[in-house]
Amino acid sequence: MKRFAWTQPTSLASAAAFAETTVADAMVALRPDTHAGHGAVLQAGGIDNLDLMKEELLQPNLVISLRAIPGLDKIEKQEASWRIGAGTTLMAVAGHPAVQARFPALATCLNQSGSPQIRAVATLGGNLLQRPRCWYFRSIAFDCLRKGGGHCFAILGENAYHAVFDNEVCAIVHPSSVATVLVALGASVELTGPNGATRRLLLEDFLVRPKQNVRRENDLQPREILTAILLPNPSASVRMAYLRLGEKQAFDWPLVDAAVILELDASSVCRQGVICLGAVAPTPYRPRAAEATLAGKVIDVPTARSAARTALDGAMPLAHNEFKLPLIETVLRRAILRAANPV
């Protein structure tokens, strides 16, 4: 880890004023030929930042800790939504009674992400903004497109853990499994600038696809702080499930994960279904055609099976990740059935 200075402001305004660059911009600015430290970057739990700084992929001059800013870790009910402070730890979100009662799929996902030790420190905001796990991206030896270089090493290289959808430019999968659930739940993000002005947008719209900009995964601007995640209150008729398959039962990013939200009427007919797949595309992926097959149906094994099959439409596996297709089908079929018939 290179040397850096440290500051821990106690107000949002000062933190935002200090944050002259985003981690994504700082990593692009760090060209292999210069190796000069660059910029002031925000840090919450520090789990992803420390990883990048230890690999010297990120060499900031100044690290701005968000930990002393009061109120960033509050969970509160608002009129039509729940507002979760971006600085809330994954453990605190998973343990909150309202999250367990109203958003059980989110609690399930959080309890399967990282280890207890990571969840005690990592924050919800940092989780959504963590950088991808592509091994070329995470190695200083490869100056790839996402770091400002001229080439994607994965598309024709070792791509077993990479995307099967939307993978023509850069084949990362979005690193946040929590985002898989939050996108399905229709979550919004609240961003605050240095003058205190906030903007709100759907998380789905905040996340950036490689075709829009290959050097960042989201639209976070310099001097902007992610202050909260807003979850619309689900109606009583909503059922949900989250499921993942991985190489290890704990403590690893999934190979494929799925969140399913179903709105059922009194006779168990599905009014609307939302599906979000993780670890298959550069952003959480919603197979809209598969979602459409659920509307108006009673959710049984044949419905779930056919929706899961439809979700594969448009998949373009790379040389080493075709194995993800049957995994998608299986995880999604099971998640749909679990949402309809909770255990």
Binding site: A5, T7, P9, T10, S14, F18
Partner: peptide, 24 residues
């Protein structure tokens, strides 16, 4: 490489709660 890596407080942050940076 220490040298000129020490950051300056941005001009916009003149509020009293700004804590001076420590290190490197």
């Amino acid at each position: 490489a220490a040298g000129d890596r020490s950051p300056k407080e941005p001009e916009t942050a003149t509020r009293r709660d700004v804590i001076a940076a420590q290190g490197p």
